[in-house]
């Protein structure tokens, strides 16, 4: 959705490069297993799509002659190091196995939970949020919220299925969107442009 929006409108105002870069870090550190394990064709294709689309979005915002001019550089100022470092420490200390790939995988789970924050802060600073950008954040949050249902279903149907690190991180991730969801639905119901209160 976001890549299509940027490609079609040649405009990335209201889009946080910081969040996209955090997602790129999340996908690369999590999908290292592309190199040594195969789960399904769907799984492999989606991993490649996630890595590829976020790389494309970053390229557009950073380097595209037209798109890069529309980037809200002065507004997108979230200090991502304050997210990356704690997640890395958490990944080193709370994991299933003390190996490089497992620590990086766990780090990516923690980082993903908070990766949307720079985008939410930028949306709050943007007076009139572009409809497509609002829809992108809604779909991203909705996609993760659906995982909660999936985890319940798998817990009930697969003996021994549990993964506390993923469940807790995913629940926090979805909770971070709650406020956004509220204003998204309100603006939808009133047929108004989305704007988050500051």
């Amino acid at each position: 959705v976001l890549l299509l929006k940027i490609h079609a409108t040649k405009n990335c105002s209201g889009v946080s490069l910081k969040t996209q870069e955090l997602y790129a870090i999340v996908f690369v550190t999590r999908y290292l297993d592309l190199l040594f394990s195969f789960i399904s064709l769907y799984n492999t294709i989606m991993k490649l799509i996630f890595i590829g689309s976020s790389a494309c979005i970053i390229w557009y915002i950073r380097f595209h002659r037209v798109v890069s001019q529309t980037y809200d550089r002065e507004q997108d100022t979230f200090r991502v190091i304050f997210l990356i470092l704690p997640c890395l420490l958490l990944g080193i200390f709370i994991n299933h196995e003390f190996t490089i790939t497992e620590i990086l995988w766990t780090f990516s789970i923690y980082l993903e939970a908070v990766a949307i924050l720079p985008q939410l802060v930028l949306l709050q600073r943007t007076k009139n949020v572009d409809t497509l950008t609002g829809n992108y954040v809604f779909l991203l949050g909705g996609y993760r919220a659906l995982y909660l249902l999936n985890w319940i279903y798998r817990f009930l149907t697969e003996p021994g299925y549990r993964q506390w690190i993923v469940w807790i991180s995913g629940t926090i991730q979805t909770a971070i969107y709650c406020d956004f969801f509220y204003y998204y639905f309100q603006s939808w119901r009133r047929n108004e442009k989305l704007s988050l209160p500051s």
Binding site: N43, M46, K47, F50, H96, G160, Y161, V166
Partner: peptide, 10 residues
């Protein structure tokens, strides 16, 4: 081992 979850989700 159930405590060693397969990373089969995205």
């Amino acid at each position: 081992d159930p405590d060693d979850p397969a990373h089969d989700e995205l």
